[in-house]
């Protein structure tokens, strides 16, 4: 019997629509894990399949016969359909962030995928420095966490990265603009660091550049029952800067690159 860890998982890309899809497909190809591509845009799917040396399947049944797991990199509004299609066939599912724009849709996906391995591409949790900050919190080194703040931003609106018609700037397909696209990293990271979901949220968005018909910057505030607050800034309107993370506790402060403990 072949040991389980020697069994290669055959991945299929479901859609190449996301800006990260090409990177994922390349990495899967490099690891010898990419087996097939399906795409709601046949031309795009065939082109990607040719580039990565795998077969394009316009038919979902044929596609799923070729794979053990899927990486969904579609417009966000298709996540629910694709998770259902894959999980109902027993395929493991990895989905690009954000999982959904509506809580109800996310809950449906969790229900569909209850019998398979189901993950989201929140790479921030895998950053060693973020893991170190979580370790400091868990160990009590920072004391009781009172406030957290994170900024995640780039210049997608300033530099008009998305052409007219692109799904990222179509609220019906993306669910939201700069705050959702980038702020969701911060939202997930602060939730993960805290170890429990906040219970209260407020926020604001704006169209600071008017480049798109969707928000290009925003901020939200989360509150936990313990009194901890978290601020997340997500924007496509900032040309340069550092994606700061700051965690303040009553014994110290952790900010990657500037760790301060027991400092008053």
């Amino acid at each position: 019997m072949v040991p389980k860890y020697f069994m290669a998982i055959r991945f299929g890309m479901m859609s190449m629509a996301h800006v990260h899809a090409e990177g994922y497909a390349s990495e899967l190809e490099k690891k010898g894990l990419l087996a097939a591509i399906y795409d709601e845009d046949e031309g795009r799917g065939r082109e990607a399949a040719k580039k990565h040396g795998v077969e394009y399947f316009p038919d979902l049944d044929a596609f799923f016969n070729r794979v053990d797991a899927v990486l969904i990199a579609s417009p966000t509004n298709l996540h629910l359909t694709y998770v259902k299609e894959a999980a109902s066939r027993g395929k493991h599912v990895l989905v690009e962030k954000p999982l959904a724009f509506k809580r109800a849709e996310a809950e449906q996906m969790v229900s569909y995928a209850s019998r398979v391995t189901f993950g989201i591409c929140f790479g921030s949790r895998l950053s060693p420095i973020n893991a170190a900050v979580k370790g400091l919190i868990s160990a009590g080194t920072l004391g009781r966490v009172t406030f957290m703040r994170i900024r995640v931003a780039h210049s997608a609106a300033l530099d008009k990265w998305f052409p007219p018609g692109n799904w990222f700037i179509d609220k019906g397909r993306s669910g939201g603009g700069g705050l959702l696209d980038l702020g969701v990293h911060g939202v997930d990271l602060l939730y993960w660091l805290k170890g429990e979901p906040p219970t209260s949220v407020t926020g604001m968005t704006s169209r600071a550049t008017s480049a798109y018909e969707i928000d290009d910057e925003g901020a939200l505030i989360m509150a936990w029952p313990s009194g901890t607050m978290g601020v997340v800034e997500g924007a496509w309107t900032q040309r340069a800067g550092f994606n700061f993370l700051e965690v303040y506790g009553d014994l110290g402060t952790a900010s990657p690159g500037c760790l301060v403990i027991n400092y008053t």
Binding site: P98, L99, M109, V110, G175, V184, P197, V201, G203
Partner: peptide, 19 residues
């Protein structure tokens, strides 16, 4: 996984509320 799909419910709920 380190980021399980079930945690997507939390971020979706937060974003839905913020918007």
């Amino acid at each position: 996984p380190i980021a399980p799909g079930s945690d997507g419910v939390v971020s979706a709920a937060i974003m839905e509320a913020a918007y």
